[in-house]
Design a protein around this nucleic acid. Sequence first.
DNA 1: GTGAAAGCGCTAACAC
DNA 2: GTGTTAGCGCTTTCAC
Lengths: 338, 338
Amino acid sequence: MQRIKLADVARAAGVHPGTASRALNPQTREQVSPATVRRVTRAAQRLGYVPNSVARGLRTARSFLIGMVVPDVTNPLFPPMVRGAEKVLTQAGYTLVLTDTDNDAATERRQIELLRARGTDGFIVATARWEDDLLAEIAAAGVPAVLVNRNTASAELPYVGGDERTGVRLAVDHLVALGHRHIAHLGGPADTSTGRERAAAFRQSVLQHGLPATDLVWACAAYTEQAGAEAAGHLLASGREFTAVVAGNDLIAFGVLDTLTRAGRSCPGEVSLIGFNDMPHLDKLAPPLTSVALPLAEMGAQAARILLARVDAPGREPPTQSLLGVELKVRASTAPVT
Amino acid sequence: MQRIKLADVARAAGVHPGTASRALNPQTREQVSPATVRRVTRAAQRLGYVPNSVARGLRTARSFLIGMVVPDVTNPLFPPMVRGAEKVLTQAGYTLVLTDTDNDAATERRQIELLRARGTDGFIVATARWEDDLLAEIAAAGVPAVLVNRNTASAELPYVGGDERTGVRLAVDHLVALGHRHIAHLGGPADTSTGRERAAAFRQSVLQHGLPATDLVWACAAYTEQAGAEAAGHLLASGREFTAVVAGNDLIAFGVLDTLTRAGRSCPGEVSLIGFNDMPHLDKLAPPLTSVALPLAEMGAQAARILLARVDAPGREPPTQSLLGVELKVRASTAPVT
DNA sequence: GTGAAAGCGCTAACAC
DNA sequence: GTGTTAGCGCTTTCAC
């Protein structure tokens, strides 16, 4: 394999390599007579010709490589996004390169530089910080890039995410409908758009219901179980009354649940709990966790589509900001207030 | 950026591009006088030269790209392996390309061909089937490749996996110690080495304990919750007595648990259950699932190391087969027989 | 509509 | 030690 080259196909079809190239490339196929196209296509098929994308890339200054930058594939939030992107990219003849950064700024920079040196055609970035120098540089340099899941303050790059505000509103509405009036939010870190958006939406939703509980809002240090546990500890220590918690994501919810349990507060008996992201298998937990589901795969796919459009037509249109629909998955961790 | 080319550096340093190339390449640096090396290095630094790996790849037929082929990153079994491999590869200057195949033979072939066309230097393959034509071809063609997690019957490629047999033995020993004498195995599909190995090890372990239960073995159609549920249905329908189940993996265990619950058999009250792979958050389930943990990240890392050794020195040594240690995580889904 | 020729940026073989 | 010369396999002017 990878033996047969364009010249071989051309020889077999009895044409010049240049002609064979034109015949095989959809873009230039019209410049060639249908008969020749057929002959070349046949020959290519028969010989099992697979174009050498390295050579092609050298000539066209394109690598057909797209870098996807995530904090950690091990976090179940990201694999669906990766797969969504992968599908679109593969279909378009691109190859996905995956990089984990562990939310470390230096690693992010190093990896992206590395991929840029490789001639990567563009980036799908799921690691955006609210204030992000690296992404600002990337935007300034005109490197094709699309953000998923997390946005930046400046919003100068295209972004695809879930409709966080609606998600939070659904969660709060649900709790209010169950009779809760003292609802806390233990949200994500303030250096992520998701953390900020969800917290802002929480405040707003609570106000809209005429509840006074705006001081029951915490930003956890990270989207981790441990950070959630700590935040819940602070909440308990504060002595404030609460009967429900909207967590920044499912991992935070896990930590919250753990702390509550240790403190002898049952869920959903005494405290109702809602997560975010709807990780797989939440229905099997004790108690099954109510969570806001984001269309992760579609987010990845959409990001890939927008990126490819940018790569193929490197105009400087204003960056699109698209928010995809979310859904509240109601499970047993939320119950009527007693 | 990616503007400055070798010729620019050479011009700035007052040498021929060929010389500049030699000076910059660690492999050939000794052929150049130290003074020249310094001048070239300086110039490169000053201009911010970043080598164009596409051009380099075209000339050297090396891409510094390694393909990792997994069934589905969405399955929590694989992300840790990906990260383990990624770490080693990045450190060695290679870039990881990820491909999901959904266990579909045609997709596997297509993706691998595609990556080969890209000049991928080697493959880490986590999708091996017990009889695998594609991998046989790859081995025959001398394409550098290493298998992780799943092996092939022919064992003609290097392989890194967990010590399945020990894992199963630990599980069975544990159940026997709890007094169980009627233990079933609802294992993985027979076209995977893991399915076969675990089933064989199960039979052997059971025999070693002098238990007669060798007919309580099923191969599920897939490593999925649904397949597990179906297999459990068959087991129940067979009317055979059993007080414990060793599942082929955690997902199968989920399906088994579901079927058992629906059938009114409590776990661990009436049936003890053990999974395989120790997915994250199993301790939060109801009941917390006992499972055999594999060193997934280390498997990925080890596979990457072996692959790189092959890529750098493409000799034809006999393929190493390494088995890494496993651990039984005992949780509440296993209890003494009543 | 097709052939000819000129490279993309780099490295490796061969001179000197 | 360094310059020279050829390409790697492809695309893309430019002729005809």
